[in-house]
């Protein structure tokens, strides 16, 4: 961190004047350096041809620092992954901060470094941005918005319309890990655990999977808020077919499973970060999973179910003991049960 003559962010840092410049010059521009950002212009001018994917997301996570990461890398990984789910190769991001005054500069710096590292890992450039500061009590330390654009992979044909009966449903790793890691440090719920968030960028593996399997991949989705159950319901609704999943095939870390049992949560509804779901032609499903196993984040990938003609628009789970039940969308926030 460079030496500065201020240690907390104040309203003046969002005024657009000298203090804003000081904040940006002191590190942001230097840290995230690239030719487009270096122009310091109102926006980035980019040459592009072909199909583009465009996505945006805002990050309001509490707490800002959590086991396994902070809001900075989440803001980069989240939008990078959304683009990857469109079958795109993410290229450029915008980055906007809404900072609550009083945020210690050390914390802001830690977030910036996380952003820089995450952008490097994902091979994306941050080319434009904005900083606003709001009064104490009007925010929650820091909110971040990132938007991103990427080039759609030449072989990608990602669409719910292409899903057909017999397709296999794949998750790329353990479910519910991120949500439980966050919950373990929320006020009032804190419990001791070694669970850390799995937040990471998924774009490189998605690109390689598209290189190899192309149009046999019918859909990518990242089951963030609402969890796997909600995404599966959206998919069933969008493609008009039924979905069968097997509880025993769904990979869940033992510690996460245990925490869910204690808290009365269903891992299928817990938020995820570092995993994606794919719906692929059954002929390539095994090879797809094998390929995923080559990636660090894909080691625990598994086929968890398939698309069926029965019970259109409904998701049915076969429990570990062989019973069947409907899996619905998450209603409101998943609340802990009393007993």
């Amino acid at each position: 961190m460079p030496s500065l003559d201020f240690d907390v962010i104040t309203l003046g840092h969002g005024s657009g004047g000298i203090l804003t410049n000081k904040l940006l010059e002191s590190g942001v521009f230097n840290l995230l350096k690239n030719p487009l950002l270096d122009t310091h212009h109102d926006g980035a001018v980019i040459d592009f041809s072909g199909k583009l994917a465009f996505s945006t997301d805002s990050y309001v996570i509490s707490p800002v620092f959590f086991p396994g990461g902070n809001i900075g890398e989440l803001a980069v990984n989240g939008t990078v992954n959304d683009l990857a789910m469109c079958g795109a190769i993410p290229k450029y991001l915008s980055l906007s901060f809404i900072i609550e005054e009083g945020l210690p500069m050390t914390e802001f710096w830690e977030i910036l470094v996380a952003i820089k590292n995450a952008a490097q890992r994902a091979n994306v450039q941050i080319v434009t941005g904005d900083t606003k500061v709001v009064e104490k009590g009007k925010g929650d330390k820091i909110f971040i918005n990132t938007s991103g654009i990427g080039e759609v992979h030449a072989k990608a044909q990602i669409s719910a319309n292409r899903i057909k009966a017999g397709d296999k449903i794949i998750v790329s790793g353990y479910v519910a890990t991120h949500g439980i890691a966050i919950m373990s440090v929320r006020e009032g719920l804190d419990f001791e655990t070694a669970i850390v968030s799995d937040t990471t960028n998924l774009n490189h593996s998605v690109k390689e999977l598209l290189d190899e399997f192309g149009s046999e991949i019918h859909l990518f989705r990242d089951p963030t808020r609402g969890g796997v159950a909600t995404v599966l319901n959206e998919i069933a609704r969008d493609c008009g077919l039924g979905i069968d999943i097997a509880q025993k095939k769904i990979p869940v870390l033992d510690e996460v499973f245990g925490a869910c049992e204690i808290l009365g949560l269903d891992p299928l509804y817990v938020a995820n970060e570092g995993i994606f779901m794919a719906i692929v032609a059954s002929e390539i499903a095994d090879d797809f999973v094998k390929k995923l196993h080559e990636f660090e984040h894909g080691k625990n990938a598994a086929i968890i179910g398939e698309v069926v003609l029965d019970h259109p628009k409904h998701v049915i789970l076969t429990s570990k003991i062989g019973g069947k039940r409907v899996v619905n969308m998450l209603v409101g926030e998943q609340l802990p049960r009393i007993c």
């Binding site: 269903d266 789970l317 076969t318 570990k320 003991i321 062989g322 019973g323 069947k324 039940r325 049960r337």
Partner: peptide, 16 residues
């Protein structure tokens, strides 16, 4: 008990 109801439903026991 509601906890029993929940378990019957969640595990799909009712239709077994």
């Amino acid at each position: 008990c509601g906890g029993q109801t929940h378990s019957l439903v969640k595990n799909g026991l009712l239709n077994l």
